[in-house]
Write a protein that binds this DNA or RNA. Sequence first.
DNA 1: CGAGAATTTGAAAGTCGTCAAACGACGTGG
DNA 2: CCACGTCGTTTGACGACTTTCAAATTCTCG
Lengths: 229, 229
Amino acid sequence: MSGAVQSVIRQPMGMAGQVSTPTRVTDPLAALIGMTITLPRDRELYAQGERAEYCYQVISGCLRTVQLMEDGRRQVAAFLLPGDCLGFDDFDSHDFAAQAVTDVVVKRFRRHDVEAQADRQLALARRLRELGASALRAAHDRLLLLGRKTASERIATFLLEMAARQHQSHMVTLPMSRVDIADHLGMTVETVCRMITHLRREGTIAVVPSGVELHAPGALRQIAADLRH
Amino acid sequence: MSGAVQSVIRQPMGMAGQVSTPTRVTDPLAALIGMTITLPRDRELYAQGERAEYCYQVISGCLRTVQLMEDGRRQVAAFLLPGDCLGFDDFDSHDFAAQAVTDVVVKRFRRHDVEAQADRQLALARRLRELGASALRAAHDRLLLLGRKTASERIATFLLEMAARQHQSHMVTLPMSRVDIADHLGMTVETVCRMITHLRREGTIAVVPSGVELHAPGALRQIAADLRH
DNA sequence: CGAGAATTTGAAAGTCGTCAAACGACGTGG
DNA sequence: CCACGTCGTTTGACGACTTTCAAATTCTCG
């Protein structure tokens, strides 16, 4: 049995960005005709450089987007949770690979169709631009993290972000491995472990099988030294 | 230098497949009504968190987008050169500040107008999505750089990228300070200098008042260990 | 229960950052 | 036109945070 696999974050879709878009009664994306696809853990949804024919919205499970260097160094650009979209803003080919962190269900759309539909439906076109803006904002926050934050700040930031995305303030599910986290935060597995251990010994968090419990979110926030607000 | 209107942020070693967009006869952006604004060096075009009423296209000069942490740590997300656009994909407020690196001339558009126009003109709507996609791709490349590349690789990558964006292969103009470069590449001024000195002593580059000459772009490329070929 | 993988911990090494100071480019003022 | 002060760049020495290498421990799954 897949232990942690099914304890993946569940949450209604439609909250793609924690952005306060004025209450959208019907998400234009929901109107698109999409095929439901399931993907087993560790399977690749698409490869880096692959022709980008489809785009996707995550229904359940967790995906990661990955960039590789020839010598094996890896950068996980993002983890995608239910409601998140990917592939909508690529060009002809995908900039990075997308892989299933857990068993995953996604809704798949033909990009050509989406583009065509966007030309007819203003709401969708706007939604697509919003989607891009969300992704861009997230990427920019990560630039600051990777460029300027220390190891402990990165971990704290990451845990808080995951908590927020799961709409939880005490329990954070971490479906991805420590290696994935390391490659996401620009550090090594060992450093990730050490930082987590440190937080645990401080009593700030507790490590449980499928994630961590946040005992002192305030302390985390202080460590994260979060910008904006 | 105004001919660069279509040169949105380009990849280092601009391959990535033929960057879709076949030769665009008329850029939808050119049709927008924009006011020309000049900005002296070091002046701020807009502040972080400021209400995003306008968006811009660079006509001449160089801008930087900046994120600040309370303790002063700074991340330069991007340098913008003639033809580049900014502010098109923000939400209500700007995610970061934009400041003039040199004296700058920009064309300013009211975002509300752009959005409205996009609703009427498919080409513009598509162009806006492309713009977002370009920015996103650039940001992702930078994630890999910040997360996984060494100091020398970052410098090499940066020089090659600047050369490509200036459509030059031997002479690179660097209008920004070493501090700006450092804050862009996630390192310190001292390290930037050391890396440049190292390349100079190797004979790979030569430092001139306004930038550097690339004597051995091949060597740079090798150092950059560039992904995506 | 046992083998292999993932996580955690430890010790040593390195890269990069910090602190400090010299050097050089400019612009102002004498 | 040159002296001088300021700011940006460069260089050096030292220290620290992370990484690297190695191994113990825990967890997963057959």
